[in-house]
Design a protein around this nucleic acid. Sequence first.
DNA 1: AACCAATCTGCTAATGATTTTCAATATAGA
DNA 2: TCTATATTGAAAATCATTAGCAGATTGGTT
Lengths: 142, 142
Amino acid sequence: MDRKKKLGQFIEACRHSGLKITPQRVAVYEVLLTREDHPTVEDIYNEVKKKYPFVSLATVYRTVETLEELGLIRKVAYWGSSVRYDANTSDHHHLICVQCGAIRDVEFCLDWTPPTNIQGYRVHKYSLHIYGVCPVCQAKEN
Amino acid sequence: MDRKKKLGQFIEACRHSGLKITPQRVAVYEVLLTREDHPTVEDIYNEVKKKYPFVSLATVYRTVETLEELGLIRKVAYWGSSVRYDANTSDHHHLICVQCGAIRDVEFCLDWTPPTNIQGYRVHKYSLHIYGVCPVCQAKEN
DNA sequence: AACCAATCTGCTAATGATTTTCAATATAGA
DNA sequence: TCTATATTGAAAATCATTAGCAGATTGGTT
Ligand SMILES: [Mn+2]
Ligand SMILES: [Mn+2]
Ligand SMILES: [Zn+2]
Ligand SMILES: [Zn+2]
């Protein structure tokens, strides 16, 4: 719904940084704004290709890097083989399926604030990883 | 302290699964039991090489996979380029340096238990990732 | 609208991490 | 000790990601 607003911010951020607004960049960010599943670069690429069949994988890699530098998306910590991205940059937690790797946002917040200093680390923020089996994988267990 | 006990469990687990007890396997697990910094495979390899200069990187990769299958070690969720392993398989949390990637165990527990079902996921366990700047990186800030 | 400098893109080659292949070797049990 | 089987080291293969480059786009300027 405020996808338009987010896209506006993106265009603003590009202008501010002297970056050009290209259809590929917009398409990559749009895919990320639409998807709730923390897609890989390959996932994004496949989605963008539907609209721009000649887009290259390298461009998608470059674009997610740019978007990350602009602070518009972030990587999700994960132990799988490829990096997964998240356009939700607000503080939130993740539900991770230990079978298939599906990652979803947790819809509640934890009312816990970490100390600003833990074991000498100057703490910025935290994130909860909740591991379990997703509905799809549960269904497969029959 | 109970390194001996853990090694004993490892040997027991190998016997139980028909796996052979080789010096390389023992050395890899010993390195993991010793280190508190969640090393990469390369880190482990460099350490094992001190004792067995002819060990191969492939063997270390194979061994960590075996150890993981036995449930004796686990991967740490992380967004860096190489996987990091943890011989501490009990529930605990991690402090992660956003500058250098140093990962340490958090020494406290959170008295929070997640619901067994969240958004359809059958929940197993959770882990907290606390992000900040480690003492070493703080010192470098001058 | 045509022009231009700088940025981007697509393609391909290079890299880095991890896995596989396979012949030679080590382990465990008889 | 002998033997079947699992494991190892070395090299090649694979997968994810990055870099290099020539040609195309973009966003101002005339
Ligand atoms: Mn998310
Ligand atoms: Mn740990
Ligand atoms: Zn699943
Ligand atoms: Zn650090």
